[in-house]
Design a protein around this nucleic acid. Structure first.
Lengths: 222, 222
DNA sequence: ACCTGAACACCGTTCAAGT
DNA sequence: ACCTGAACACCGTTCAAGT
């Protein structure tokens, strides 16, 4: 936008890429569009990122740096409260960048930022008295939830699917009685769905607490 | 391959698409390649699927039909054992189609096959004495695990990342002492990683059972 | 009704050339 | 060292035309 004469740098390229994805979605993030926003030819980008995949790797590093700053140093007392706070803080960053979860999942190489985040998670587990074996299984049990997001495969309260889904559920109510009954019973009037897939705060916290308290039980048993 | 004179049909198109993804990965599934495998021009496909997105929708329906056949009618006694069996059976199908989980997550429209699967899940919860409210929260807690898969964001035992990751972990051991220690302690010699993301059977079952037993506790409390 | 061929508007990326 | 312009090899898709 401004600062036309600032020379291109990796940081400027990645920053502009995040801005495009935030504003217009991840599909809008093309090399040509990115170059245009930077006032440069597309090919100039290749001096700062090796290719499109490397660009996406870099964009994830930006997001993970945001998370690292937000969560700070791992707290080492009351592991369950510390984990809960860490995850919910990270989640706020993903709510700001709804495209980031999907990009993160498509990375093939290991991201140093993700590694650093998980090392902090492990620090909390260890301080809470977990063996490395239990901590390892805990990481698997949490999956992406450790980073603050969890995909739902369909969303009955998705505002985007409103008309279509409502008609569909209506139409299919006779075939799928349980789903129809559940939808009818549950008042879904809180519109705080933000991650594209259904991921309401209360429901995320329910799943998180269910896993954390299960882990605490296993830890206490030794 | 064979059957050159069989007229094109939606079923043949979707079957060929699944075969391409299974054999050469989801990136190989292009309209042109699909047409070529069917001995037809690319544009002919558009008489049987509206566009590429509709093709992917259809491909998911094929996978969900495989799952529906594999899981059968929902069992209605011992909800926990029934859910466990249903999920692990569905998981087998995803292990046969490693690309399917990612495609499923990118669907924007609701898939009838997924709806039907979840209706069966709800039938099991209800027969086990769950309220619709608890069943709803249970679906969120399980997330994609209800369908048999869970993405891990990085995989320390991924054979593909072997050399690179090992060197990296080595190099970064001083910065990430907990991860390094955990990797060193855990004997990762079972090579049954199959879904691309780390998703070993034992670790999947650990997470699944942790959630299911947590849900049982909540159900018993009323 | 079903299939075709050429064409269009996009991609990411290579390469030789400029400063 | 950094950036450019043209070009290449791909995409998904439109359209008018064939049978």
């Amino acid at each position: 936008m401004t600062a036309e004469r600032v020379p291109l740098s990796r940081a400027r390229v990645l920053g502009a890429a995040v801005a495009i994805a935030d504003r217009d979605g991840i599909a809008a993030l093309t090399m040509r569009r990115l170059a245009q926003d930077l006032g440069v030819e597309a090919m100039s980008l290749y001096h700062h990122v090796a290719n499109k995949e490397a660009l996406l790797d870099g964009v994830i590093e930006v997001v993970m740096a945001e998370i690292a700053e937000a969560v700070g140093e791992p707290v080492v007392e009351d592991w369950q409260a510390a984990m809960r706070a860490r995850v919910l803080t990270a989640r706020q960053v993903f709510l700001r960048h709804p495209w980031a979860a999907r990009v993160l999942e498509t990375r093939t190489s290991i991201s140093p930022g993700v590694i650093a985040y998980y090392d902090g998670v492990l620090a909390i587990f260890r301080a809470g008295g977990f063996s490395y074996d239990l901590a390892h299984r805990a990481l698997h049990a949490l999956g992406s939830r450790a980073l603050g997001f969890s995909q739902e495969l369909f969303d009955l309260s998705d505002p985007a699917a409103d008309a279509e889904a409502e008609a569909m559920v209506q139409e299919l109510a006779e075939h799928f009685p349980h789903l129809a009954a559940m939808v009818a019973e549950i008042a879904h009037d809180d519109p705080d769905s933000a991650l594209g897939w259904c991921d309401h705060q209360a429901e995320f916290e329910f799943g998180l607490d269910l896993i954390l308290s299960g882990l605490e039980r296993l830890r206490a048993e030794g």
